[in-house]
């Protein structure tokens, strides 16, 4: 009874905390100064059609680097926690995947890989980008794992590709420091014509690298989780 009371009290306090947000905060009708600058100067300075991408990759590039580091640390933590195989092994009964799943995944996997690559190479033009594209690549890998229960991904290869793309990301950041305005500045390449695939300086390259890195990171996590026998 006391437990339930404390729970209700906590939830009521949280709801009370949110009340001013709902009652007092007015809807914004204008952009603040930072956003105003990003929206008006972004297309001219960076040549990116998708301004969210311009904010993520260039204006707040350091945040994105930190985000990738957090994802990497989480992957390392998962690898650390699962390093020892279980002592008591109760393996689930193995059975091969069904005909429908196998045929469907043979059809879908190439399309999913193509779609993932499309999403992360067109991140500066359309909604989407490196993280979303990387996750679509991972979904292709997951479908492959479900349909081919025996096949294994090469763990070393995914780790090497992931590390190499991480190093390239940093190298591009330092190139921006040397050749353009600052760390992770994407303007050291030609801006080109807005709306083309090869435009917006180094943004498509950076986002492709992020896409490959995120995809390989998540495939590594899936692989680590899959071989677990609980």
């Amino acid at each position: 009874m006391a437990k339930r009371f404390i729970t209700l009290l906590l939830i009521a306090l949280l709801a009370y905390m949110f009340l001013p947000f709902i009652v007092e905060v007015d809807e914004t009708s204008q952009l603040n100064r930072v956003a105003e600058k990003y929206v008006t100067a972004g297309p001219l300075e960076l040549g990116a059609a998708n301004l969210v991408t311009a904010v993520i990759v260039t204006y707040r590039g350091l945040d994105t680097l930190g985000e990738i580091v957090v994802l990497f640390i989480a992957a390392v933590g998962i690898g650390f926690l699962l390093r020892k195989p279980s002592k008591k092994k109760i393996a689930a009964p193995k059975r091969s995947s069904s005909e429908i799943l196998r045929t469907g995944s043979d059809f879908l996997i190439p399309l999913l890989i193509l779609f993932g690559v499309y999403i992360f190479t067109h991140g500066h033009l359309t909604p989407g980008g490196g993280f979303q594209g990387g996750v679509v690549l991972t979904s292709a890998a997951l479908l492959f794992m479900l349909s081919n229960t025996e096949a294994r991904f090469n763990k070393q290869l995914t780790e090497v590709i992931e590390s190499v793309s991480g190093i390239f990301y940093l190298i591009i950041g330092i190139l921006g420091l040397i050749l353009a305005g600052g760390f992770l500045d994407s303007r050291f390449l030609q801006l080109g014509e807005m709306g083309r695939l090869f435009s917006a300086g180094a943004i498509p390259i950076i986002y492709s690298i992020i896409g490959i890195k995120v995809g390989m990171e998540l495939i590594g996590i899936l692989e680590k989780l899959r071989k677990e026998e609980i």
Binding site: I56, E67, I78
Partner: peptide, 27 residues
């Protein structure tokens, strides 16, 4: 405003990583 959208993109990825880590703790 593009900044909250960019922040949410970051938050989704971090949330994914944290959820995966918690599930491994559950294992």
């Amino acid at each position: 405003d593009p900044v909250p959208s960019a922040l949410v993109l970051t938050a989704i990825v971090i949330g994914l990583a944290i959820t995966a880590l918690m599930l491994v703790y559950a294992v």
